[in-house]
Amino acid sequence: MKKVINAPENVVSEMLSGMEKAHGDIIRVVAEHNLVVRADAPVSGKVALVSGGGSGHEPTHGGYVGAGMLDAACAGSVFTSPTPDQMLEATKAVDGGAGVFYVVKNYTGDVLNFEMAGELAEAEGIQTDYVVVNDDVAVEDSTYTSGRRGIAGTIFVHKICGAAADDGKDLSGIKELAERVNANVRTMGMSLTSCIPPEAGEPIFEIADDEMEIGMGIHGEPGIERKKIEPANEIVDQLLGKILSDNVDFSGSEVAVMVNGLGGTPPMELYIAYSHVADVLEREGITVYGRPYVGDYMTSLEMAGFSVTLLKLDEEMKGYLTAPCKVAAGRPF
């Protein structure tokens, strides 16, 4: 294992310390609970958005804390759900009196722990609600999951609902919008390599140098097929084919598009993939709205690979997607 770390057991706390030192004008860190919190939180009268999950997916989730996106993010250990106590502390730290909304990726630990945190918060007089994001079209009922996994499409929920909350939408309105985004977003990914969690010190799975896995999950969960590596255009055709044949009718629509790197794929390769994504969408009569989002949005440590996400947009989503935000991840939107 070759990593730029000190001690494996300290990677999360030291990462958060670095984030706070680098972005102290945007965020603050609650070190005893491994929380990233919007610097000006709580914002009175605004619905607060909280998300979180295992570390190792950066810039998800802490990188999206700030004005126009999340109010707080809970950082679990690498690939491990945060605890209900962490989530409750995040809830209390950002509650501005209008309720707290949880954006939860569909992994069993995340769902159970956020549900428990919501119950604890309600007992303390804080109104909560949540959405479970399940945008991955690859498999159902995978490792860690009942139903479809939540992956990179979650970032569109963060952005659109975060902007809506800053715009003054109430808790029930945020819930409806989040469910509408989730119902219209679909993602499919692939990987070329495994990755090495620092405390494990070894790859989480083995894959041959000439192989790729189609439909790989962000924790290394198996996909739908392992096969010999193919040219980029053929890989994109497989990913988009699965997305476009799912139960969202993208034909004739305007979409937000994300080509998301998993941590070990250089921008050169992501743009090669996006070039063919754009060609396929044009051929299918699907219009890319605004700019495409090409880069590392939700990673799996140093895994090589990428995912493609399409979000079918309506007019309200368009306005919130392009609204300004200021987050630690820089200018992801």
Rank of each mutant, 00 (worst) to 15 (best):
V181M: 01
A183W: 06
N184K: 14
N184D: 10
R186D: 10
R186I: 14
M188C: 10
M190L: 15
M190F: 14
S191R: 09
L192D: 02
T193D: 05
S194N: 04
S194K: 01
S194C: 03
C195W: 05
P197S: 02
P197I: 04
P197F: 00
P198Y: 10
E199W: 05
E199R: 05
A200Y: 12
A200M: 14
E202G: 00
I204F: 00
F205H: 02
F205N: 02
I207Q: 00
D210C: 03
D210T: 07
D210E: 08
D210M: 03
D210K: 05
M212C: 03
E213A: 03
I214T: 00
M216E: 01
G217D: 04
G220D: 08
E221R: 08
P222V: 14
G223H: 09
G223A: 09
G223T: 10
I224W: 15
K227I: 11
K227E: 13
K227S: 09
K227D: 09
K228L: 15
I229H: 04
E230V: 12
E230Q: 13
E230W: 06
A232V: 15
A232N: 12
V236T: 02
V236R: 04
L239C: 03
L240Q: 02
L240N: 01
G241P: 07
G241D: 06
K242W: 01
I243R: 06
I243V: 13
I243E: 10
L244P: 06
L244F: 06
L244T: 05
S245Y: 11
S245L: 08
S245N: 15
D249K: 03
G252F: 11
S253N: 11
E254L: 05
V255F: 11
V255Y: 12
V255E: 08
A256D: 02
V257S: 02
M258Y: 12
V259W: 10
V259Y: 08
N260F: 06
L262D: 09
L262F: 11
L262W: 10
G264Q: 14
T265N: 04
T265Q: 03
P266H: 04
P267A: 06
P267G: 04
M268E: 15
E269V: 10
L270S: 11
L270H: 13
I272C: 06
S275T: 14
S275A: 13
S275H: 12
H276F: 09
H276C: 03
A278V: 09
A278L: 11
D279M: 14
D279R: 15
L281I: 08
L281R: 11
L281D: 07
E282I: 12
E282Y: 13
R283W: 03
R283C: 04
E284W: 13
E284D: 13
I286N: 01
T287Q: 11
T287N: 11
T287M: 06
V288M: 03
R291L: 07
V294L: 15
V294T: 12
V294M: 15
V294W: 15
G295W: 15
D296W: 05
Y297E: 10
Y297K: 09
T299K: 00
T299Y: 00
S300H: 07
S300L: 08
S300K: 09
E302L: 04
A304G: 00
F306L: 10
S307I: 01
S307M: 01
V308I: 09
V308M: 01
L310V: 10
L311C: 12
K312E: 08
L313Y: 13
D314S: 05
D314P: 07
